[in-house]
Amino acid sequence: QRKAVTMLRNIVSNILEFHNYLLQRTDARVKDYPLMQSPVEMTTILLTYVVFSVYVGPRLMANRKPFHLNTAMVVYNLSMVVLNAYIVYEFMMSGWATTFTWRCDLCDTSSSPQALRMIRVAWLFYFSKYIELLDTVFFVLRKKQSQITFLHVFHHSFMPWTWWWGITLTPAGGMGSFHAMVNATVHVIMYFYYGLSAAGPRFHKYLWWKKYMTAIQLTQFILVSVHISQYYFMEKCDYQVPLWIHLIWIYGTFFFLLFSHFWVQAYIKGNRPPVTVDKPKQNGFISDDITVVTNGKHLENGVAHHYSNGKILPGKVKEV
């Protein structure tokens, strides 16, 4: 029993020591931004999101009719188009379209107007990931559990969690911020697509380009991977946190492989079942079950997953 108590004390002591270390390492320029004071707040929010998405939400809606939230979804998606377009603009004006070389761009540790502008937009990109959790909330309330896949939940929770560390240690991340700008650019297109889809059947004729959404995603990962790969071929690049370089390269390559697999299965081998169509509902309308998932996911590797008693189970490939 004494050994157990001693072990517990050591664990708590190590956690507190690491927490104090983080507080000391947190960039002074970002300390006063919301959700940047400690990893506890953001971890709590994201864990709550996971529990709601996988367990609580589906059970609350089990014996309820799905909500018809098309108006709210149109407003939400078009608002996200505007927000992401602003993020792209700010990334460009705070370095990528002004002073960056697009090669070995180091983290800016100064308090210059450009550095502070980069910090603001990097934090805004990070904060937008919490707003995007509403994607899943809409799925839950509309009883679209088949679209709440493992990778959907994992990506929506893991990305803001990892970005907290990046914003904490290197808020003006230089070449490490390129993937965020590209991702925000893709989200402008994605949320515009979502907005048209939610607007009703009369707009679905304008969604003929849904096939190319996967191509847009593949292009995103190619751009990110190629850009960050330059680091490995430069004679000298004193980027302050090489770990970010390695993680971004792994991320870009991993998702490129997933999307390539989906592209082959869906558009070369043609392993796509017919589009499912919801039946007309009272106070509603017929709507195609069109699925395009933001944040670098397009039906998560082309695999739809289905709920059974709150558990996420693998299903078949659905048309995208």
Rank of each mutant, 00 (worst) to 15 (best):
F254M: 09
Y232C: 12
W209P: 04
L257Y: 04
Y206D: 13
L258I: 02
P242H: 05
Q220C: 06
W244Y: 07
W263H: 02
Y231D: 13
S260H: 01
I216F: 09
K236L: 08
Q230L: 15
K211E: 15
W208R: 11
C237L: 04
W263P: 00
W209F: 07
Q230N: 15
E235Y: 02
K205V: 10
C237R: 02
L196F: 12
P242W: 03
S197I: 02
Q220L: 03
R202Q: 15
L247R: 03
T253N: 11
A199G: 07
M234G: 03
I228Y: 01
F259P: 00
G252F: 00
M213K: 02
K210G: 07
H246E: 11
A215G: 11
H261D: 14
I216P: 06
R202Y: 11
K210F: 07
Y212D: 10
T219Q: 11
Y251K: 03
Y239M: 06
Y239T: 04
Y251E: 12
W209E: 06
Y239L: 05
I228R: 05
Y206E: 12
T214P: 00
Y232T: 08
V264K: 03
T214F: 00
T253W: 04
G252S: 10
I228H: 05
P201F: 01
L196P: 06
P201H: 04
I248T: 08
Q220K: 07
L247P: 01
H261K: 05
Y251S: 08
V264C: 07
A215K: 05
H246R: 07
V226W: 10
I250E: 07
Y193I: 04
P242V: 05
L218S: 02
K205Y: 04
A215W: 03
A215E: 10
